[in-house]
């Protein structure tokens, strides 16, 4: 008969956290920033069809970094949660805060009770209307929720990227300024990122009920100030 070894809970948690962090750091980062007309999310993503940034509801967007299958599963659960709630009650009753709590509980649950933590970080962003502020909820692999007001960075090298974002930050900047700052923050001093390596989407204030919009191809190239892709 084998004897179970005693492992201190501190050690278990530390090992799990290291494992999750390593997995997340392998992936490419993502920046979400508030600008004059809404929220802009910029991700380094060479794929045209496998998205990191997605629509959840009228004014709510979702973004994830790390293992694709893990955050995509959470995305679908979020869309279902929001659509069910909006249908049963009212569209106004669907909010990012409640969704962020559901995600945080699930991630926390998996982190403490399962063998393998989820190797993801996710963002739930909500566009504020009628004077309400825009909200950015950054949720970590262990269920920690961080509520940001200006911008947030998900994924590997987050601190360095956040430092670069912080130094270029300007209150009430335009979509072009925010996009260019996010792209150069993601790229760092030694690289440049082209339109075909980026996935960009915005939640923009306007008349449309569904505020989520992808910024792609020609429009993206134009905002970046580079020739359009052929």
């Amino acid at each position: 008969m084998t004897m179970p070894f005693y492992v201190a809970p501190e050690q278990v948690m530390k090992d799990r956290a290291d494992y999750a962090r390593k997995g997340i750091a392998r992936g490419r980062a993502l920046v979400a920033a508030v600008f004059a007309e809404g929220i802009l999310v910029t991700a380094e993503n060479p794929s045209r069809s496998l998205h990191k940034i997605n629509e959840i509801y009228d004014r709510i967007a979702f973004a994830g970094v790390g293992r694709y299958n893990e955050f995509d599963q959470l995305r679908v659960a979020g869309v279902r949660h929001a659509d069910t709630k909006g249908f049963a009650y009212s569209r106004e009753d669907v909010d990012a805060r409640s969704l962020a709590n559901v995600y945080a509980q699930y991630l926390g649950q998996v982190f403490t009770h399962e063998m393998k933590p989820l190797e993801i970080e996710i963002l739930v962003a909500e566009l504020g209307v009628d004077g309400a502020p825009d909200q950015l909820y950054h949720i970590l692999y262990d269920g920690t929720v961080v509520d940001e007001e200006r911008f947030t960075v998900l994924g590997g090298e987050a601190e360095a990227i956040a430092g670069r974002m912080d130094s270029s930050w300007a209150e009430g900047w335009t979509v072009t300024e925010a996009l260019r700052a996010a792209v150069s923050a993601l790229a760092g001093p030694d690289r440049t990122l082209g339109a075909d390596e980026l996935e960009v989407a915005a939640l923009a204030r306007g008349d449309a009920r569904r505020a989520f919009r992808r910024i792609e191809d020609g429009e993206l190239a134009e905002l970046l100030g580079v020739p359009p892709p052929t």
């Binding site: 997605n54 959840i56 679908v76 569904r210």
Partner: peptide
């Protein structure tokens, strides 16, 4: 109608 609208939008968001 409300359910139909929700279903179409749900499909679009889940499937992209």
């Amino acid at each position: 109608v409300k359910l139909f609208q929700t279903q179409l939008e749900h499909y679009e968001k889940v499937e992209g």
